[in-house]
Computed example of a mutant assay.
Amino acid sequence: MVSRRTFLKLFGAALVGGVGVVAYAFGLEPLVRLSITKNQVKTPKWRYGPPLRIAALADFHACEPWMNAHRVRQIVAKTNALKPDVILLLGDYLSGMRMVFRSLPNDELAAALSHLSAPLGVHAILGNHDWWEDEAAQLRGGGPTAIGDAMKKVGISVFENDVLRLEKAGQPFWLAGLADQWALFPNKGLTRGRHVGLDDLDGTLEQIDDDAPVILMAHEPDIFPRVPDRVALTLSGHTHGGQIRLGGYSPVVPSKYGNKYAYGHIQENGRDLLVSGGLGCSMIPVRFGVPPEINLIEIS
């Protein structure tokens, strides 16, 4: 039998430990930690040419204090220091949280991102929060979006069902980027689940006119079962790895597939998907077991 004194000691230790975990999840992991996650993707679809180094940044959710301009500039500097061939931004630049001092203005965020630099450029897609936080775009039932325009003004290309042919060392590849799958609230047309998507996977890939490898940017990973073998690599964000992740499992994942496409490098039927854990927080400012990350991907 445990004595009263022993019980109180154990209870006190558990209480202190619990407070420490909460402080870590609200303070240290989302605000301080920043991982460089290196991913190697080897695929026969990358048939020729040298390996391509991609830096992928997802889900900034820019706001104060959780993702202020100083934090964004730190991420930009660390990304540039990796010397990638190309930098890809995977959506959700706007916050969408209530527990904030203020959301970062579009021009301030775009100015911080404008310092990203890579030989093959900086290219972006939009995420659901970039649409949800844009009242004018919601009323129109379509773009342009304010954050998309702000990014274009500083030289970042924004893809919405678009493709671009690039080359490294004389070897071509295609970059394709989908419009968001959850862009509009349901009162703007036929719904897909809770929201209306503007993505057009077939129409996007039909713009490709040769057999060079394809890298696809799609904010939500739920599109992956429909991605054809033609695509060498699909890159997504959105899930944040669940924001809370223990032993490879996330209790809550914003995906109809649950943990199947929650995080990391997923291989399925000879196809490759990389889901970034992202950088910021959505809904609540908590991260535990999935620290903010910059993904450095080498495809060969």
Score class of each variant (00 low, 15 high):
residue 1 M to W: 10
residue 3 S to N: 09
residue 4 R to L: 11
residue 5 R to D: 09
residue 6 T to S: 14
residue 8 L to F: 08
residue 13 A to T: 10
residue 17 G to Q: 05
residue 21 V to D: 03
residue 25 A to N: 09
residue 25 A to F: 03
residue 28 L to G: 09
residue 31 L to M: 15
residue 38 K to Q: 14
residue 41 V to N: 05
residue 41 V to T: 04
residue 49 G to K: 11
residue 49 G to H: 11
residue 52 L to G: 06
residue 56 A to D: 04
residue 68 N to H: 07
residue 71 R to S: 13
residue 71 R to N: 13
residue 71 R to L: 12
residue 76 V to Y: 10
residue 79 T to C: 14
residue 81 A to D: 12
residue 82 L to D: 04
residue 82 L to H: 05
residue 83 K to C: 11
residue 86 V to D: 00
residue 90 L to K: 05
residue 91 G to M: 05
residue 94 L to G: 06
residue 97 M to Y: 01
residue 97 M to V: 05
residue 99 M to N: 13
residue 101 F to H: 14
residue 105 P to E: 01
residue 106 N to D: 13
residue 107 D to R: 06
residue 112 A to N: 09
residue 118 A to T: 06
residue 119 P to I: 01
residue 123 H to Y: 07
residue 124 A to W: 00
residue 125 I to F: 06
residue 125 I to Y: 02
residue 128 N to P: 07
residue 131 W to T: 14
residue 135 E to N: 12
residue 152 K to H: 09
residue 153 K to A: 14
residue 154 V to R: 00
residue 155 G to D: 08
residue 162 D to G: 08
residue 164 L to P: 00
residue 165 R to E: 09
residue 167 E to S: 12
residue 169 A to W: 05
residue 170 G to V: 02
residue 170 G to I: 03
residue 170 G to P: 02
residue 173 F to W: 12
residue 177 G to V: 08
residue 178 L to G: 04
residue 178 L to K: 04
residue 178 L to R: 08
residue 180 D to C: 10
residue 183 A to I: 11
residue 183 A to W: 04
residue 184 L to I: 12
residue 184 L to D: 13
residue 189 G to K: 07
residue 192 R to A: 13
residue 199 D to G: 09
residue 201 L to M: 06
residue 201 L to D: 03
residue 205 L to K: 09
residue 207 Q to F: 10
residue 208 I to A: 13
residue 208 I to H: 10
residue 208 I to E: 12
residue 210 D to Y: 06
residue 217 M to E: 05
residue 217 M to P: 01
residue 221 P to E: 06
residue 226 R to H: 11
residue 228 P to Y: 08
residue 231 V to D: 11
residue 234 T to M: 13
residue 234 T to V: 12
residue 235 L to E: 07
residue 237 G to H: 01
residue 243 Q to Y: 01
residue 244 I to R: 01
residue 248 G to C: 11
residue 248 G to L: 08
residue 249 Y to G: 05
residue 251 P to Q: 09
residue 253 V to Y: 03
residue 254 P to I: 03
residue 260 K to I: 07
residue 261 Y to C: 08
residue 261 Y to K: 04
residue 270 G to K: 09
residue 271 R to A: 02
residue 277 G to E: 00
residue 282 S to R: 02
residue 284 I to L: 14
residue 285 P to C: 05
residue 285 P to E: 09
residue 288 F to H: 04
residue 290 V to E: 00
